[in-house]
Design a protein around this nucleic acid. Structure first.
Lengths: 217, 217, 217, 217
DNA sequence: GATGAATGAGGCTTCATTCAT
DNA sequence: TATGAATGAAGCCTCATTCAT
């Protein structure tokens, strides 16, 4: 969640952060990113609705009203967090699917990437996992659902290609397979501790073991 | 969600429903159960915090204040829903683990039971899945976490017994295996439609296939 | 507060308790008196507004709605308690003022009577003392203020007669003297314990000592 | 009610007013004091429970919710009013008891001070007098009872010293004497009108007359 | 006499948001 | 950028009261 600032959609008075890329990043948006990080953590930990604008402001050491100098609304904060997250995720995923040689290698790559993502931006992932009720019922968040479908397409492409190529068993429904993998993996965000003893690679390897060969001896 | 009549814990002024027994239960409080069912669905669909007591009352055709004739608070409703759910779940799970002959049969039984539960009481399951932030951060809901640990013990018992008996591969960490299965299965509540074309048995069978033999051809 | 039941004013469906006097008293109104006693104690102890109709019903072992078989309203209960109290008080006071020979004997009699009243019906007295804000601002309770004025007249009559007869000092304003005595005496209801070691007669004697001779040696 | 600025006790989010000093106080929070004055008058006049936060807000010309920008709760307002009052009272009383030469002069000083206090902050005194039911039954207000006991100690010290020195009669129980005086004096708040024709000094003088020499000619 | 369910009004409080300074 | 005061809407809950059974 380095520095990606996207202007909030609706007639915002906020400047589009021209910097964007790596390195440069003007000092102006440093506070923005910091506030978003605070918000993301609280949204993820307590829940979006349970987190008040004052909770965030308190944590940032300012008054709640002052947050509105940086963001149009509480919802805009969540939007920005999720937009960044989904955008990056989709980009990475597509790159992986394109780069890898075999479907099997691509699948493994996607899976490793998922665990890395959970490790790197756990709060964004948790948000995405836990706020599904809000995300699917609020039209403003339709972009999340749309991005999810784009993600699904990539994974399904890999799975189908793998089944065709003989990498994967052909008797399994790709749709169910995708959900199975997706749910098992992304759910780990609820219990995985980035600073715990279990490395994300370790978890990934074990999960791959199970996925590849199954449980039976 | 058989016996929905448990007296609310803390010095409640509400009567303990003497009936309680199995199945239909005495004339006690059909209304209570009805209101809880409405609440469960809304809590699950919109989220607990996003659901207002008036939403529930409106759906029930009464005024919001009238809910308090039946329940001490909004939170008490959630508590009762979850207490019933966790209690029943734990009872069923223990029975299965005890009744089945082999660890493998027990595991399959647990998995089938999970899908049946999702099919039968999807809202309670969804609540349990989606409100984790609330459930773990509010002391009043500590009983849920405790019951979860009890559930985990049963599953782990089966998995370890199976690894010892040669039913399951011995190179997998039982703890991670449990989480893997648990997360994959319970997450289906988010997309499984009890009235859709996919039968819960069908999903269960496919998931068992993947779990047993893995993905690779 | 034996059994005096007065029909509540406004088109009440309640019967006027014909019995009234001592002895006879039909069984019908026993419950009424009992409920009024409970209400009086709670009103006095917690305050009228802080006491809910359900508090009273709980204490009586019935549901709050059932109270309305006995009384028209919560306010009607307070009205009945106070009407009984003020009526009796006024009757007794007038008797004393008329019966005693000298103003000084009359004053002492009034004072003894006050302490006896506090001892006998502490809750009614406390109500009268503590709910002055409510009693003076609610038109329905104007009768209390009126009765208070009647009481004052009797006391003032004694005091003025005593000043004229040379019983009491003539340099004191009778109005202020009355308030001084009244406030000192009735306030004891706040700390006097009918079941404590201090007898009401003992307190009365001490107070009379101070009133008669003053504090200075 | 000189320094109205005491931070609300319990982990309040509100700032502690640094000013605090004597008299006018820094620019801190004039609004706070103003709102407290309004609240005190209404609490005293209508009763605490009968006064709604909207009553207070209406009188202040703001919305009821806006009150919570200044105070944590309705109860916190009462707490602050009473804490200021009791604190000041205790301070003054101790000063008087220490400064005066003879016990008799000290007693007179205490009594004059009481009447002045009633004249100066009638609402706080009335609150203290009228809300005893609330004050003694709510643990949050235990500090009031405690301060009352401290006040009592000062008075009792003077009375006992006076009895020992031969200033006062020795045949009177000091405890009863204290209550007698206290109740007679503080009760005047219920009928004394600061803007009426009776000066508080006049009332004080008459009361002292009665207390000193008694009623009898 | 009493129950149980409900009403309707209103109370305290929270919270996202605005805006003058 | 930030503060401090305020708004307005809404949320949870309480409570006196009613009424069919």
């Amino acid at each position: 969640m380095a520095s990606k600032n996207e202007a909030t959609a609706r007639g915002s008075r906020r400047r589009t952060d021209a910097a964007g890329g790596a390195g440069a990043g003007g000092g102006g948006s440093a506070r923005r990113a910091q506030l978003l990080a605070i918000a993301a953590e609280m949204f993820a930990t307590r829940g979006y609705t349970q987190t008040t604008v004052r909770d965030i402001a308190d944590e940032a050491g300012i008054l709640s009203g002052s947050l509105y100098h940086h963001f149009d609304s509480k919802e805009a904060m969540l939007t920005e967090i999720l937009r960044d997250f989904m955008g990056n995720l989709l980009g990475e995923i597509r790159e992986i699917a394109k780069a890898e040689e075999s479907p099997r290698a691509a699948l493994d790559g996607l899976i490793y990437n998922s665990f890395e993502t959970i490790h790197r931006v756990p709060f964004a992932v948790a948000l995405y996992q836990n706020e599904s009720a809000l995300l699917t019922s609020t039209p403003e968040f339709a972009f999340v659902t749309k991005a999810s479908l784009d993600v699904e397409k990539v994974w399904l492409g890999v799975l189908k290609a793998g089944a065709g190529a003989g990498d994967f068993r052909a008797d399994l429904d790709p749709g169910l397979t995708y959900r199975f993998i997706r749910d098992a993996i992304w759910s780990t965000v609820r219990w995985y501790n980035p600073r715990g003893r279990l490395q994300h690679r370790t978890v990934a390897d074990q999960y791959l073991e199970m996925l590849h060969g199954g449980l039976l001896a």
